[in-house]
Design a protein around this nucleic acid. Structure first.
Length: 433
RNA sequence: GCGGUAGUGGUGAAGUGGUUAACACACUGGUUUGUGGAUCCAGCAUGCGAGGGUUCGAUCCCCUUCUACCGCCCCA
């Protein structure tokens, strides 16, 4: 009957205690593991000057042209909620001069938090979603590419995921990419009329995107399209070979997918995605994606600096964990529940519950002056291990009853003992069994 | 931005153009007045997403809108 007047904004979610426990687990695993790889956490603003994103993502990308959650603030500044993590990190890297000689290279950071994209919500797609991501600046080494991919694989493994596919590809350097782009245009243009309408447009704007098309009409041609691998420069080839060799050395299974491209324009050389092979989750199959980029730091006014990073979609990850039934079991059980009977016991009930909490136990009491039966029901529902009962009788005698809810045994203790020796009382109680 | 499906209480849901909107779960109270997972009893939607319209009358028909889910685009 009470119809709420307000609804959460489209494409957002409320995370309630059952879910936040799982989120905390995922986040703490990330902090721990990334720390092992010597990545440090950074926190940058959730909104930035609009140009930070448009500059980095490329003016033609969909993220910039139609998915930006942007607005003008009261000072008429054009700002946008961050659609991804990298741009803000790069901005901070340059603004704080983290490229300076006093900082070790590569400079390795991770972040986690909400991202925003103005688009239609659907499977695995939200307007506010969360990413856990990493960036490493200042090294071109293939070993860095591979270590970071290995870290992502490690992360999912620790969380209990199996059957993941690591897909990799290379976009080569600028020279390679330009050559390939031209080759692709030369190959596709004669067939332009036979392509899907979308791909005809892609051919003009961003030919590599045609490779990504799911339209059967396009896939016919994609199957026989030239491969980027045939257009790599010597340098790009060396990098690519080394990445593959290192992945094999670490026994990481991977698939080379030469049709894989990235949504943002700044990538070069190694790119990768980690996805589930579960057909039921195809709409949200990709849970992590990233790769090597260059030009971004200089674009923001810093020295030419290489970067490598990835982002993990937390909602998709958690969805996958639940689908594979590898979510950790959350325990909201109480250690103690304080049953208080009669208004006169209110004061001492508070003292008892506080005292129990001070020992580090999880304790709750009744605040509604409910019947003893009702209070016990609540204690039972919350799986309290022990119930402490205080009524008029006990109050007068400065005692309380402690009941072990699994054995049903109950004993009388002095309040003074309860306040000072509760752990001992519980231990000896256990010994009696 | 485009297309499809849906919207009944705290939850899962049944239902019909016409006096009191099933059932189940959950919850609250009771079942000798201070003790828990069982049984039994009782209570629990002036309301069927919101706003209009058609009609003597609409939760059920029509329109609009909002939201969710799914697909396209794109992406995590």
């Amino acid at each position: 009957m009470s119809k709420s007047i307000f609804q959460r904004p489209k494409g957002t979610a409320d995370l309630l205690p059952d879910q936040t426990a799982q989120w905390q687990h995922v986040e703490s695993v990330a902090r721990l593991l990334f720390g092992d790889y010597n990545f440090k956490e950074v926190r940058t603003p959730i909104f930035e000057n609009f140009d930070v994103f448009s500059r980095s993502a490329g003016d033609t990308s969909d993220v910039v042209t139609k998915e930006m959650y942007d607005f003008h603030d009261k000072g008429d500044r054009h700002v946008a909620l961050r659609p991804e993590g990298t741009a803000g990190i790069v901005r901070a890297y340059v603004e704080n001069k983290l490229f300076g000689p006093e900082f070790d290279k590569p400079y390795k950071v991770f972040y986690m938090g909400p991202m925003f994209r103005y688009e239609r919500p659907q499977a695995g797609r939200f307007r506010q979603f969360h990413q856990i991501g990493v960036e490493a600046f200042g090294s071109n080494a293939p070993a860095l590419d591979v270590e970071i991919i290995a870290m992502a694989v490690d992360f999912f493994k620790i969380l209990g995921l199996k059957n993941l596919k690591v897909a990799i590809n290379t976009l080569g350097d600028r020279e390679s990419r330009d050559a390939y782009r031209q080759a692709l245009i030369d190959y596709l243009t004669p067939h332009k009329a036979e392509l899907s309408v979308d791909s005809q447009e892609r051919l003009d704007k961003n030919p590599l995107r045609v490779l990504d098309s799911k339209d059967p009409r396009d896939q016919v041609f994609v199957a026989d399209a030239p491969s980027i691998l045939d257009y790599l420069s010597d340098e790009a080839t060396t990098h690519w070979q080394q990445v593959k060799a290192l992945l094999q050395a670490l026994a990481i299974d991977f698939e080379i997918d030469t049709t894989m491209v990235r949504g943002l324009d700044y990538y070069n050389d190694t790119i990768f995605e980690i996805m589930t092979v579960d057909e039921n989750l195809k709409g949200a199959a990709t849970i992590a994606g990233g790769g090597r980029y260059s030009g971004l730091v200089s674009e923001f006014g810093g020295p030419e600096t290489a970067g490598f990073g990835f982002g993990i979609g937390v909602e998709r990850l958690i969805n996958l964990l639940n689908a594979h039934d590898v979510a950790p079991k959350v325990n909201h059980d109480l250690d103690f529940y304080i049953v208080n009977i009669g208004i006169a016991t209110d004061l001492v009930a508070t003292q008892i519950v506080q005292s129990i909490r001070s020992f580090g136990y999880i304790a709750e009491r009744d605040y509604l002056a409910r019947s003893a039966k009702a209070q016990f029901k609540t204690a039972d529902r919350q799986h309290a291990k022990y119930v402490v009962t205080i009524g008029e009788q006990e109050l007068a005698n400065h005692t309380a009853k402690i009941k072990n809810m699994t054995t049903g045994q109950q004993k009388l203790v002095k309040l003074a003992d309860l306040y000072t020796d509760l752990p001992t009382i519980i231990d000896s109680e256990g010994d009696e069994q």
